[in-house]
Amino acid sequence: MLSSVGDANRYYFDQAARVTAIRLATEPGIDAHLSINFMPNAVYKQQSCIRATMEAARIYGFDPERLIFEVTEAEKIDDRPHLRRIFDEYREQGLMRAIDDYGEGFAGLNHLIELEPDLVKIDLNLVRGVDRHRSRQAVIRSTALLCEEMGIRLIAEGVETREEFETLRDMGLSLFQGYWFARPGFESLPQPNMP
């Protein structure tokens, strides 16, 4: 399906994906946050875009304060001031904002400074094998310190082994996601593997 998304329909695809995610998140009836990856190059007018998202949350009874909007660092941003306006609008609406795939992409530290996210998700390529790689540990440790000083919560994504989890936990991280905890399911809740 993604191969059929282009410049002409990117905005509509982004909107439809948001509404579907909100609808599906309400069906299990659990009280959790919902992360929505958005395509910054597809969001033309942040006010109208967020209005549709807030309307979907209202229709399906999803508390908008539990929405987290993630921009991936792996996507090259065509208009950085525009992305900042999007993040500012989300902040004004009381929504959480996150940088996904941190350490993988185009902006790095500039994203932290310019966007002032609530959350940063460390890219799985930095997490992979962190228990055996001192250089990865050093990068994650320094990123954790930087985020702490900036008031940003840090999430390690792509945790697949007990050793990765324990190493990251021992480094002071407290938020994780990855196959070690649960495998994703299509339109279903994953079965957690609680370490």
Rank of each mutant, 00 (worst) to 15 (best):
A8R: 14
Y11M: 14
F13D: 03
F13H: 08
A16D: 11
A16G: 04
R18F: 08
V19P: 00
V19S: 07
T20Y: 12
T20V: 09
A21E: 08
I22M: 04
L24Y: 11
T26A: 10
E27D: 10
I30R: 04
H33E: 05
L34Q: 06
S35H: 03
I36H: 00
N37G: 08
N37C: 02
F38A: 05
F38Q: 02
M39Y: 14
V43H: 00
V43M: 05
K45C: 13
S48T: 15
I50H: 05
R51W: 15
T53L: 12
M54H: 05
I59L: 15
F62Q: 08
E65P: 07
L67V: 10
E73D: 02
A74V: 15
R80S: 11
R80W: 08
H82N: 15
L83M: 07
E89V: 13
E89N: 14
Q93C: 13
L95T: 07
M96A: 11
A98C: 09
A98K: 00
A98W: 04
D100E: 02
G103L: 02
E104W: 00
F106E: 15
F106W: 14
N110E: 15
N110P: 07
H111M: 03
I113D: 13
E114M: 12
D118R: 13
L119G: 02
L119K: 03
L119C: 03
D123S: 04
L124A: 00
V127K: 02
V130S: 00
D131P: 11
R132T: 15
H133Q: 11
S135W: 13
V139F: 05
M150H: 04
M150Y: 01
M150A: 09
G151L: 06
I152D: 01
E157H: 03
E157K: 00
G158M: 00
R162L: 01
L168F: 01
R169E: 07
R169G: 05
D170S: 11
D170K: 10
D170Q: 14
G172Y: 03
G172V: 06
G172K: 06
S174R: 14
L175E: 00
G178L: 04
Y179G: 00
F181T: 02
R183W: 02
G185K: 11
Q191V: 10
P192C: 03
P195L: 06
